[in-house]
């Protein structure tokens, strides 16, 4: 007897809709990668990194700094978080004057610096290049900051602590993705649903 092909799915499994499976979506599979953290390009070079690459990483971070540094409406509020004399004017103006932002206190070099053939970096460099296509799996080179009450810790512009001393550190890339300091407008979708609340679904 010849079996005719079934008209239904071979399986109908669920993963995260099942009660015990909530952890699946929480990004637990993300690998930590290494990055290097320095206060200045000179310090970077002192860690046996090529000075030109240290300069380039520093310049990249410095360029990103005014785009991502947290914004404050005035100097007092900024210094309350980052300490006296640790803030500068941001590029944007508001009606009462300038926005303020903390000064850049260091930088994180995401791409592995070429450390004269040190074995530790070689495998990683390859995997980072591959992952670079997707963007979110690498650590972008970026500025770092230090808060008023914790002068040892390097933090990203979004206040993620990344290291308490200069040199190599390990981090989850998703935790250190720079984003524009600009505040997003929200709530631009969904108004019609609120007006037409007769329905319990907006599908059909």
């Amino acid at each position: 007897m010849k079996l005719r092909p079934s008209k239904r799915s071979q399986k109908a499994a669920l993963i995260f809709m099942l009660p015990a499976a909530g952890l699946v979506l929480n990004g637990c599979a993300e690998k930590e990668v290494t990055a290097q953290v320095f206060s200045t390009p000179d310090e970077c070079a002192a860690f046996y990194n090529p000075p030109a690459q240290c300069q380039a990483a520093f310049a990249e971070a410095e360029q990103l700094h005014p785009k991502v540094a947290p914004r404050y409406a005035n100097k007092q509020e900024c210094e309350a978080d980052f300490g006296a004399g640790q803030c500068e004017t941001a590029p944007e103006q508001h009606q009462q004057g300038s926005f303020f932002m903390p000064m850049m206190m260091g930088f994180m070099a995401g791409q592995m610096l070429n450390r004269g053939g040190l074995a530790a970096g070689s495998g990683q460099a390859t995997s980072q290049q591959t992952a670079g296509a997707t963007g979110r799996n690498t650590v972008p080179t970026q500025p770092l900051y230090k808060s008023r009450d914790d002068r040892n810790t390097f933090r990203t512009a979004t206040n993620t602590a990344v290291a308490s001393q200069s040199g190599t550190t390990t981090i989850r890339p998703s935790a250190v993705q720079p984003k524009p300091a600009t505040l997003a407008r929200r709530g631009g979708f969904g108004a019609q649903a609120a007006q037409r609340s007769a329905n319990r679904s907006y599908g059909g």
Partner: peptide, 16 residues
């Protein structure tokens, strides 16, 4: 849906 954001014309998530 209501939490979607807009930064300079680009749709963004909660983290921007």
């Amino acid at each position: 849906l209501e939490q979607l954001g807009d930064i300079e014309g680009q749709l963004v998530d909660m983290a921007g």
